[in-house]
């Protein structure tokens, strides 16, 4: 077994385990921390695919910024086991059914996608490197890229507007 295969399995197990812990943890703070661990595991997968930029940006944006805000809100709300609202059994059932349905849809959508025969592309392929990524983004995909930036800008303006007191 090559070193990349070992890394792949370790990271996969870590990602799945921490993702399960996110759902099953009773303490919301623990959930958030497990989610951060999940992000790190996924970033590890990106690195195995030689998508370094994606890996780093995943950590900067998700683990470093968004999860900080999550943690922020949860800390301020002081959620804990005692203040957790009682869940009905049918609510849990509904959650399970909808989650399962989503899994089904994802599997159905992805089962026909072309899969590379390798598990990982460590040190191979350069699609994930910043140079090629930048060239793609600013040539072939420049219109979607700019459109999404306008979307973000409008979302930001909207957030500022909502955040204003009067």
């Amino acid at each position: 077994m090559s070193i990349s295969a070992i890394l792949f399995w370790v990271l996969s197990v870590a990602a799945l385990f921490s993702a399960l812990m996110v759902v099953t943890s009773r303490n919301p703070i623990h959930s958030v921390i497990w989610l951060i661990v999940t992000f790190f595991a996924i970033s590890g997968h990106y690195i195995l695919l030689n998508a370094q930029f994606l890996a780093v940006v995943n950590i900067i944006v998700y683990a470093g910024a968004i999860m900080v805000l999550f943690l922020f809100v949860i800390m301020l709300m002081n959620l804990n086991k005692e203040s957790e609202p009682a869940r009905h059994r049918w609510l849990q059932l509904a959650g399970g059914v909808s989650g399962g349905a989503l899994l089904l849809v994802l599997v159905a959508a992805l089962k026909d996608t072309e899969l590379k025969s390798q598990q990982s592309l460590m040190l191979e392929g350069n699609t994930g490197l910043i140079k090629t990524l930048g060239q793609e983004l600013f040539s072939n995909y420049v219109i979607p890229f700019e459109l999404s930036s306008i979307l973000f800008l409008s979302a930001m303006v909207g957030a500022v507007l909502i955040g204003k007191k009067d």
Binding site: Q52, I60, V68, L129
Partner: peptide
């Protein structure tokens, strides 16, 4: 290849120690 971005990613995670 990411060099300085690694620094930034680690710094952005650095908040958790305090939080």
């Amino acid at each position: 290849d990411m060099g300085i971005l690694i620094v930034f990613s680690v710094v952005s995670v650095g908040v958790y120690g305090i939080m």
